[in-house]
């Protein structure tokens, strides 16, 4: 009897398993996977979006690799990372950030070209909605994310008032393409105590706990391959020694073929470690499958 039940169970589950392994690459419309955000997740550059990384649909696995450079008057931020998207449902991402203090390092007493580094491990789950195809519904695509960040300069972080070199952000994102207007909008709530994205640790002498921060984007499709837009992202102001401001950018993202996206932006990160007006060029190249 048990044997018979097992056979019946196998017959019921095997076709499902066969279907599960029969994956298919590609299938997202051009630019509807977003680009790599500074934290490695699919987004707009500064902001995390509810879209899942990679070209895949619910039938497959996709992913991307990216390299980003942000050239500021007194600093340079370089990030390299990748993400995997599973069935347009789950995203796993990783990025390594290198923050070069260049000559500012001397003024800060750290030394010429002192480097702050950070690793960000991200996971995102799409919980509802379809940003792209459900054009008859207002329900946006909604995703929850967690980003665990590990900065590498614990001693300096503590010396300037930071509470920890490690931290975890929790995010709730809503993204919708209003196709009839060629407009994509995103709004994300981030619970974080990260100082300058976490590069200067988590929590500080002014504020230790996580606070709710907002990040949002609006983008307009100019041609099927070109999107222009702007982003805004608030940040906590935890450290007494240096004020931290909201960041914003204006960007253009160009799809090159089916597998590459080039993003160029003018970004303003505000004051960073007492050096004001950190505005400059953001360049990012993403390859995806």
């Amino acid at each position: 009897m048990l044997f018979r039940l097992l056979i019946v169970a196998a017959c019921l589950t095997l076709p499902g398993m066969a279907q599960a392994t029969d994956t298919r690459a590609g299938g997202k419309l051009v630019l509807t996977e977003g680009v790599s955000s500074v934290e490695g997740s699919a987004g707009g550059g500064l902001a995390n979006w509810a879209l899942i990384a990679g070209n895949e649909t619910e039938d497959g696995i996709g992913g991307n690799l990216h390299a980003t450079e942000v050239l500021l008057p007194d600093y340079k931020l370089t990030s390299v990372g990748g993400a995997v998207g599973w069935r347009d449902r789950i995203e796993i991402s990783y990025v390594h950030q290198v923050f070069d203090t260049r000559t500012a390092g001397v003024a800060l007493g750290l030394g010429q070209g002192f480097i702050f580094g950070e690793d960000v491990f991200g996971a995102k789950l799409r919980v509802a909605g379809d940003a792209v195809w459900d054009q008859d519904r207002w329900l946006p695509q909604i995703a929850v994310s967690v980003q665990h960040k590990r900065a590498n300069r614990a001693a300096i972080i503590r010396a300037v008032g930071g509470k920890s070199a490690d931290g975890t952000d929790f995010l709730l994102s809503a993204t919708k393409l209003v196709l009839a207007k060629g407009l994509l909008v995103d709004a994300t709530l981030r619970l974080t105590n990260g100082n300058q994205f976490g590069l200067f640790g988590f929590g500080g002498d002014r504020q230790a706990a996580r606070t709710a921060q907002f990040e949002g984007s609006a983008a307009l499709m100019v041609t099927p391959r070109l999107v222009i837009g702007g982003e805004y992202r608030t940040k906590p102001d935890n450290l007494g020694f240096a004020r931290e401001n909201a960041a914003y950018d204006v960007f253009a993202a160009l799809a090159v073929g089916h597998h590459a996206t080039l993003t160029a932006a003018y970004t303003d990160l505000g004051s960073v470690a007492t050096f004001a007006r950190q505005r400059g060029l953001f360049l990012s190249l993403q390859g995806s499958f």
Partner: peptide, 30 residues
């Protein structure tokens, strides 16, 4: 998605205004 790409290419060839292309695609997407 492949079919939509071909529809977009055909609309480009016909020189349909991009805003009109997107309005039709929004109607077809659901």
């Amino acid at each position: 998605a492949a079919l939509v790409e071909h529809l977009q290419a055909a609309m480009q060839t016909e020189h349909i205004a991009f805003t009109a292309q997107n309005r039709l695609l929004a109607k077809l997407a659901p």
